[in-house]
């Protein structure tokens, strides 16, 4: 809880900073009323199909020209790795990874692929004060590395802990994350490399709204197989990638305490006040000050205490 509060606070202050810089920009004012692009693409991820072969990781590495991994992609010992007390997470060298979970009531392990969920209203975008992030009409959340100043606000803002940082880069450290293969594939209407590579079609690519229908149909068609919930349909205002699972989502690494509203809703009211504070308050309080001190400077000029107060 304290973690979320801290994140909210930082995201809020970052967004506030962004608002101060970008007050005249239409984007800052329009944010929060946006409900996703109507034809935005998405990916339905069915955890029940994943067998943990890590082919998606290899495909991502090749497609995005990422550096050589520490271990081969067919090495399943990575599922036992624990870093800083946690399972593997996305890094600047691996935009997607698969983790293994052992839910309580299941004999078989459950594998879960992790990558950017391409939120309808991304918190990373909200938190970025140089406007490096963009949600494209095709559904991808992409970012402009050239303007990234390396503040890492997006890393704190992201509810899924996705953006990673090139800490090893001395001169120009930047954020790195999954971009839905936007440059090489999505732009042309093709599915991302991981989706195409999957032998089990864990991931189904299509228009988000069509896939949502299929997701609910799968739950209906297979009574007892799935948890009756599509993770990402409502979470943080809806995500472009959403999930079906046979095990409770909290047992396979999902944060089930996320708000249903976009992260920006936490700071929207605050953001709306910022322009008012910046424009109206100075004028208003200068006026009060002038009214309050009107006439006082005459006839009381030799009063030292008043002089001191007015000095401020």
């Amino acid at each position: 809880m304290s973690k979320i509060t801290r994140r909210r606070f930082l995201a809020g202050s970052a967004a506030g900073g962004a608002a101060i810089m970008l007050t005249p920009a239409k984007k800052a004012l329009a944010a929060g009323s946006f409900e996703g692009f109507p034809d935005g693409m998405g990916v339905l991820v069915d955890l029940t199909r994943c067998v943990g072969c890590r082919t998606c990781e290899a495909a991502c590495n090749a497609e995005q020209n990422l550096p050589e991994p520490a271990k081969p992609f067919d090495d399943t010992s990575v599922f036992d790795e624990i870093h800083h007390g946690q399972k593997r997470r996305t890094t600047d060298k691996a935009y997607t990874i698969v983790n293994r979970y052992e839910p309580k009531d299941s004999d078989e392990p459950v594998y879960r692929k992790i990558q950017c969920n391409h939120c309808n209203e991304p918190a990373c975008l909200t938190s970025c004060f140089v406007n490096a992030y963009k949600k494209t009409p095709e559904g991808a959340v992409i970012y402009n590395e050239k303007v990234c100043v390396g503040c890492r606000n997006c890393m704190i803002a992201c509810p899924f802990h996705i953006p990673a940082y090139t800490y090893h880069s001395v001169l120009n450290p930047v954020i790195k994350k999954c971009i839905f293969c936007y440059d090489t594939r999505l732009k042309e209407g093709r599915p991302p490399a991981c989706v195409e590579s999957c032998p089990q079609q864990v991931m189904t690519f299509g228009k988000r709204k069509d896939l949502m229908v299929i997701a609910h149909e799968r739950i209906k068609k297979n009574p007892g197989k799935y948890v009756d919930h599509v993770y990402g349909e409502k979470e943080v205002g809806g995500t472009g990638w959403f999930y079906l699972s046979s095990a409770p989502f909290e047992e396979v690494g999902f944060d089930v305490n996320l708000p249903k509203k976009p992260i920006i809703d936490n700071v929207k009211d605050f953001l709306a006040i910022v322009p008012i504070v910046l424009t109206v308050w100075p004028a208003l309080f200068t006026g009060f000050h002038l009214l309050a001190t009107k006439g006082k400077s005459h006839g009381h000029g030799d009063d030292h205490s008043h002089d001191e107060q007015e000095g401020h």
Binding site: T55, A58, A62, E68, K71, P72, D74, D75
Partner: peptide, 9 residues
């Protein structure tokens, strides 16, 4: 593709 066998890291 899998960086395995002779292509292993």
């Amino acid at each position: 593709f899998y960086r395995s066998g002779e292509f292993a890291p």
